[in-house]
Write a protein that binds this DNA or RNA. Structure first.
Length: 707
DNA sequence: CTTAGGG
DNA sequence: CCCTAAG
């Protein structure tokens, strides 16, 4: 009887088997390891490689050759091996941190691609895997074809050659200039970027050279992958964004994203992933670092693809914190003496890689203004340019912003890679803390935001030349929130550019961040129907991500012009994680639960009871990445509270009384039935409850359950 | 990592 | 939402 009633309340829609009650540790072990191992690896490998490379560059060729033979090939081969099916046996040496192999996957197309649910996109599952695999292929082939690395034989060797002639489409290949500067060090690129792939790219025979091309390799991905891989699988993504760095990269991100979504079905919810993100966010408060989390996405997909780590020699934690910890450790370990790099002019390309670029972007980072009759003021600086005059408009385009005064503190023995990372972190922390644009005219900061340009004197062509914009940390309000959902997008190349590429201190998105973030729309999640019956549909939250995704990359390109005078603006940059940790930790954006979410939550709780938030999360919010089980728990808490107070006292989006009733009912029900010792299926639950103390549980349709 | 609770 | 103690 009880059972029956329950069913009438939707319990029949449950799929209990979904969450086996095996020991949690068991349930997670698999994913966990994968995730952790790989992620760690990405960092470690990169870090390690950086170290190696640095050492090489510093020591005689003799020793470097040695490492060459051992280290790089190891990595390179490791990755290629899987991709290439056939490669010469490789000896894997684990640099300084452990088995490189741990981060290697073995793509396997035999996976259940049948499950492809193109809800969000039309891209068939295989494409997703392609995205990943191709990265490898690209790299490996590039290596082999460009480097003539005889060790690696591309599967589609006959096609490889083509690659040579394929110039990085729409991508600015790392200019030769970089070869002169510090920025030419390969590692950081990989580090900041796609990790393994880049890493791999750097591991060819000629690390320097190949690495210098990382950007090209990566960005030309779309082009290269075709060559590298057979045509065995559909590749919608390829067709979608055939060119453009942004597109290419974004595409990848999307793929990752989607893929992650797809695979999430199979994976047990991995809070660690989420939490990891959060931690990273906390630490760096920047989406740029999402690069790291992304690796996770990678990992998560592995099970699906059938990829598997070669082995797990150690249990590594992919926990970002740990990663950071490693870095820290290394730094510390490395020494006492530190080098402080400071620059009034900004830690831009010039200062670091002594490879000044043509003055186009304005070495001074000054803005270029144009007066137009009709033009609308640049969206970017729209705020600044509070133009009131009806006819005269000031049109300006900021070629680049410069980041003034970046203090970097790293030991002399630190690797270039770590230096880069440090810089990235510094910049990141700046961005993460939120940015504000300052206006500098004639070397003086213009503080009055209410004055018109006219009043301020920004009217004549002459004045334009003395106009500059600065990026200022905005401790008060940070746009990060949105960032959190944003994919690393162009991070990759940008990062390197940041240091090695001169004036164009590509802080990219920074501006975008300033003016678009908040717009990031009400969490689409609101419209999602989380009912168990419709769990199939992709939560709109996905869209949110994608939306964000679309935004940033598309606008990528803004540079910030900064006048030395405003150097103080950005001021000091945290020198270490610690400071960063304390300063950039921000709250996540508040995301009120929508009614549909509440309903989903209620539904889930009705079914699972309280105290099983993880399962609730898995069941109904598995795809709502921004809802952690803690969030759900908290929400439930507030819901219960809300349900208990007078309607007049409630705030926010009103929750249907009906739902609140259910909340109350479920609450009382579960509180009495210590939903703890649970069963594995509805029947069991029903049975168990049947013997419990009689209670009445009001449910949706008004029916009551006798328990 | 999860839960449970207080802040 | 965050933070934490506990488990």
């Amino acid at each position: 009887m009880v059972f029956k009633k329950r069913q009438s309340h939707g319990f029949n829609n449950l799929h209990f088997p979904s969450v086996p009650k095996a020991p949690r540790s068991a349930r997670r072990a698999f994913h966990k390891r994968i995730v952790e191992d790989s992620q760690i690896c990405a960092f470690e490998l990169l870090a390690s490689l950086a170290g190696k490379l640095l050492q090489e560059s510093e020591s005689s060729s003799a020793s470097s050759n040695a490492s060459d033979a051992n280290d790089r090939p190891a990595i390179s081969d490791g990755v290629v091996k899987r991709e290439q099916v056939e490669t010469k046996p490789v000896k894997t040496e684990c640099l300084d941190l452990g088995s490189c192999e741990e981060s290697i996957f073995l793509p396997d197309y035999g996976s259940p691609s049948s499950d492809s649910r193109g809800s969000l996109n039309e891209i068939p599952l295989p494409a997703e895997s392609d995205a990943i695999l191709e990265r490898y292929s690209t790299v490996s082939n590039s290596d082999s074809s460009e480097k003539g690395n005889s060790d690696v034989k591309p599967i589609h060797g006959e096609k490889a050659p083509k690659l040579e002639g394929v110039p990085p489409v729409t991508v600015e290949p790392c200019d030769e200039k970089q070869e002169n500067g510090v920025g030419s060090q390969p590692l950081a690129d990989g580090m900041e970027t796609r990790g393994l792939i880049l890493h791999n790219a750097c591991s060819s025979k000629d690390p320097m050279e190949s690495c210098l091309r990382n950007p090209a390799l990566i960005n030309s991905d779309n082009t290269a992958k075709h060559l590298s891989r057979g045509n065995s699988l559909p590749r919608a993504s390829d067709l979608k964004h055939g060119n453009g760095v942004k597109l290419g990269i974004r595409d990848d991100d999307e793929n990752f994203f989607r893929f992650n979504k797809l695979s999430s079905r199979r994976k047990a919810f991995r809070p660690s992933s989420r939490i990891g993100d959060r931690r990273i966010r906390k630490l760096l408060s920047s989406k740029y670092w999402k690069a790291a989390p992304k690796l996770k996405d990678y990992e998560l997909t592995r099970p699906y693809l059938g990829m598997k780590p070669l082995h797990h020699k150690r249990k590594l934690s992919c926990n970002p914190d740990k990663t950071q910890g490693d870095i820290l450790y290394k730094r510390r370990k490395f020494s006492d003496r530190s080098v402080v790099i400071a620059s009034d002019r900004g830690f831009s390309g010039e200062s670091v890689c002594n490879s000044p670029e043509k003055g186009t972007s304005g070495d001074n980072g000054s803005a270029v203004l144009c007066y137009g009759e009709n033009g609308k003021s640049s969206p970017v600086i729209g705020n600044q340019a509070q133009l009131r005059s009806k006819d005269s408009h000031v049109k300006l385009s900021i070629k680049s912003f410069k980041i003034p005064e970046l203090f970097i503190d790293v030991p002399e023995t630190a690797t270039v890679g770590s230096l880069k990372r440090t810089v990235v972190e510094a910049v990141t922390s700046l961005l993460g803390g939120g940015l504000r644009v300052g206006l500098v005219l004639h070397g003086k900061k213009v503080r009055d935001d209410n004055r018109t340009l006219l009043q301020t004197g920004i009217t004549s062509a002459e004045s334009l030349e003395t106009l500059g914009f600065t990026l200022e940390p905005n401790s008060v309000q940070a746009p990060v929130p949105l960032c959190s959902e944003e994919p690393p997008a162009i991070f990759p190349c940008e990062t390197s550019h940041l240091i090695s590429r001169s004036p164009e201190t590509t802080i990219v998105e920074s501006l975008k961040l300033i003016d678009s973030p908040r717009l990031a729309p009400s969490p689409p999640t609101n419209q999602v129907d989380y009912n168990s019956e419709t769990t199939d549909q992709e939560p709109l939250s996905c869209n949110a991500d994608i939306v964000a995704d679309n935004k940033s990359p598309s606008d990528f390109k803004a540079l910030v012009a900064v006048e030395p005078a405003s150097a103080e603006a950005l001021a000091v940059v945290p020198l270490n994680q610690k400071s960063r940790r304390s300063e950039n930790v921000q709250r996540r954006t508040r995301r009120p639960f929508s009614v549909s979410e509440v309903e989903a939550l209620v539904q889930a709780v009705e079914e699972l009871g309280t105290g099983r938030w993880r399962d609730v999360k898995l069941r109904s919010f598995d795809n709502a990445d921004h809802r952690t089980y803690v969030d759900l728990k908290d929400k439930w808490k507030t819901l219960v509270h809300t349900a208990q107070i007078a309607p007049q006292q409630r705030r926010g989006e009103p929750v249907p009384q009906k739902l609140l009733d259910r909340v109350l009912a479920a609450h009382s029900y579960w509180s009495q039935h210590q939903a703890k010792q649970h069963t594995k299926n509805a029947a069991a639950v029903a049975t168990a409850t049947a013997t419990a103390t009689p209670t009445v549980l009001q449910i949706t349709d008004g029916q009551a359950i006798e328990a």
